[in-house]
Amino acid sequence: MRDNAYASLVGTAVGDALGDGLYLRDNAINRRLPTAPWRWTDDTEMACSVLHVLRGHGHVDPDALATSFVAHYDVDRGYGTGIDVMMRDVQRGGDLRALATRTFGGTGSWGNGAAMRVAPLGAWFAGDPARAAAEAAVAAAVTHTHPEGIAGAVAIAVAAAAPAEHMFAEVLRHTAPGEVRSGIEKAAALRATPEEAARELGTGGRVSAPDTVPLALWVIARHPDDYEEAVWEVAALAEDVDTLCAIVGGVIAARVGQEGIPALWRQSVEPLPGWV
């Protein structure tokens, strides 16, 4: 297993669990850590499957990824309604990948779920943004077949794969036209306070890729090698706090390694599952 991909997974889990514990905006603004242990959510559980499949295959095998998502699904991890419904249908004999194509009247989901789990994939293909983009699109389509849902995953994977100084250029190079890309273009050019950026770019309140990914990338660009500051900043701005913290934490940890994550934070999070 590649060290930077595992570090990204740890960074995802720490951000996810901390963000989930900061259920009051005031806690994030005043930087009050929740009481340990911190419990991670579906963001981390699904990211574990992504890395598990990469470790076993060297690439994203969509059938293996769907199988892992189903095998490790835990209703108590706070999955979104769409995934919960699909998993119940799978238990009745449905196929996850086929069900994903029929969600939202056949348009597929453009939620932020494919983006929240993909930073370790980008880290796995570090230095090869084009490969990261291609593999992220395959990984996203297992559950999110709408072009915007896929674009969100591609953008985050490329951000984790690309050098920090070229992040926006590479992300825009590989992200298809649409709302996600338009938001990223705005983020790349935006000179604003964090509060202004949140109003301009979105805070995850719609739980969509266009409403989540641009702000995540804007914060990452401001703090490319400062895990703690980036996670605190996005936590104070976000509505979907755990997901935005997971994305930001996963991308930055891919660059700075586990040692770049505060030791107390790493110690406060429940362990990752043994199967990963």
Rank of each mutant, 00 (worst) to 15 (best):
A246W: 01
I29R: 13
H174Q: 08
G11Y: 03
T193P: 09
V207I: 14
G202W: 04
S49G: 14
R173E: 14
A7R: 01
A134E: 14
G93F: 04
S208Q: 14
I261R: 00
R255I: 03
T107I: 14
A134R: 15
H166P: 04
S49I: 08
F69A: 06
G257A: 02
T143A: 08
M167R: 07
A5V: 05
D211Q: 03
P273K: 00
R92G: 14
I184R: 02
A98D: 15
G260W: 00
A151N: 09
A71I: 06
A17I: 01
L18E: 09
D89F: 09
G15L: 02
R191E: 13
W40C: 02
I29Q: 15
L217T: 07
M87S: 07
P147N: 11
R88Q: 15
G249E: 00
N112L: 09
R266T: 00
W218H: 08
N4K: 07
R77Y: 03
T243H: 02
F69Y: 15
G178A: 10
G106W: 05
L96C: 05
D128M: 05
L172T: 08
G113E: 05
R181N: 05
V207E: 13
S182T: 15
F168Q: 05
V234F: 01
E229R: 14
R92K: 13
A98V: 12
A151S: 12
P34S: 14
R25L: 13
A136W: 04
L65Q: 03
W232M: 02
A100R: 01
E170N: 13
R2H: 10
A230H: 00
G21E: 03
L190K: 03
R2A: 05
Y6W: 15
N27P: 09
F168M: 12
G205A: 14
M1V: 12
W110S: 09
G80I: 09
I184H: 02
D16Q: 02
R77W: 03
G204M: 10
L121E: 09
T12G: 02
A17L: 03
L9N: 01
T212I: 08
G82A: 13
I247W: 01
A139L: 06
T44I: 03
E196W: 13
L244E: 06
R97S: 05
A130K: 12
P194Y: 05
A71L: 07
R199F: 06
A119P: 11
H57A: 14
L215T: 07
W218S: 06
H72K: 04
I83M: 12
H52R: 10
V70D: 07
V50D: 08
L18K: 12
G11T: 03
T101R: 13
R131L: 15
E185R: 09
V256Q: 00
A47I: 10
T81M: 11
E259C: 08
A7T: 07
A17M: 06
G257F: 01
G82Q: 12
W218M: 05
A28Y: 02
G204Y: 07
E135D: 04
A169L: 11
T143F: 11
A187H: 04
D16L: 00
Y73R: 08
S268Y: 01
R92W: 11
H146Y: 13
A254S: 11
W110F: 14
W110H: 13
I220G: 04
G257Q: 00
